[in-house]
Design a protein around this nucleic acid. Sequence first.
DNA 1: TAGTGGTCTAGACCACGCA
DNA 2: GCGTGGTCTAGACCACTAC
Lengths: 234, 234
Amino acid sequence: MPAPLYLQIREILIARMATGTFRPGHPLPSEFALAAELNVSQGTVRKALDTLAADNLVIRRQGLGTFMPEATAERALFQYFRMTGADGESLIPVPISEDISTHPAPAHLASRLSVAENAPLIRIRRVRALRHAPATLEDIWIDPQILPMPANGAPLPNALYTHYQRAHNISIARAEDFVSATAAPAHVAQAISIPQDAPVLLVRRDAYDLTGRLVETRESYFHTDGIGYSVTLR
Amino acid sequence: MPAPLYLQIREILIARMATGTFRPGHPLPSEFALAAELNVSQGTVRKALDTLAADNLVIRRQGLGTFMPEATAERALFQYFRMTGADGESLIPVPISEDISTHPAPAHLASRLSVAENAPLIRIRRVRALRHAPATLEDIWIDPQILPMPANGAPLPNALYTHYQRAHNISIARAEDFVSATAAPAHVAQAISIPQDAPVLLVRRDAYDLTGRLVETRESYFHTDGIGYSVTLR
DNA sequence: TAGTGGTCTAGACCACGCA
DNA sequence: GCGTGGTCTAGACCACTAC
């Protein structure tokens, strides 16, 4: 049995976003235009667009159109940055330092990123502040085969997802977080000025693009003094 | 400007679930029956039901009907228990001990539960195992004015949300989690057999019913050895 | 004013679960 | 076979945005 029409339409639209037929920040064709082109009714296109909007893969604005989302810093913050104050107040991370280098893939990351053990991986290590104090160290690992990067030298844009989208037309569509508690390793403790072995949050994140491909994995350590990972369950 | 019809219908249906007109585990009237009764088209009822289904407030089953969800143990696990293994494997908590008592509301909880400081609150302290080892201690706080409980004595059902729904017709509709890392307090360390001050996850949860009222707040400590809090962001 | 998405309706047919 | 929700269509009108 074939998939329902509106899901077929959905996949077509996702493919067009993934391949660059539609461009981030730009409107998609109108519902009627898509319906005419794809030989379905406008209601079916609407249903496909509604499912995409529910997954934050498009943004609908009455009177304006349906837009492919742009990976702005604001969007990354709102959608993917989950750290807040104890009362839910939103926090803004401020970059302190950043270091790009290449390393052989550690065993526990190689399988996650589907590369051979010891294959070269790019590692971005950065320290950021929350509430004017250093609070997090992150290691971001990417496969240079998917996302080439200046291994040394050229500065990196503030929001990485913006870079992925602009330079490589890779849009982050979904992230899986795994949150645990651990004792701060020495390099983390030193970077964010806390005692070694102090309790810290460790957030492991796998980020996937529109085609479902894993494009980045990161390990973020957070000092959780009046700060925590917030999420709503329904 | 009035709210759209389908949102008005949505609120009516929520109210009927909250007041017991619809019963957990039972089907709602069919789309056509509701449409006829509420003087709207079947399509409008469908849209209202779709938004409810998206929030897990009803369950739709083709050929059977649309059901008000029952707060079963399985459902509580699947929907609200976020702890998994490092590879995402789901874990099942096994009760080890449970203790019900009454305490004056601590300051930091009184405001959250909207009761006076030192007003009597019921506290359920329980210890549970994951993978056959004690792994979590939880303190669950409720206002006896909302959810009366046998302060001492009578045993409690395994799944608390089941009890809320069966005995008081209160369905949990939404939960807000705030996850941080902390050093294990003495009573936690002792209960789950880890060294005092070992890093543990602390999950603070506020749970709301169908009317948006906060009915429970809990603080859960987890030993995160190969275990973590998992969530997908879109 | 023109064009977009948002709401609402009406009706047809399909897929599923059960008696 | 019957009743349920699921899909698909067609068309009308509203609300918002830009020009």
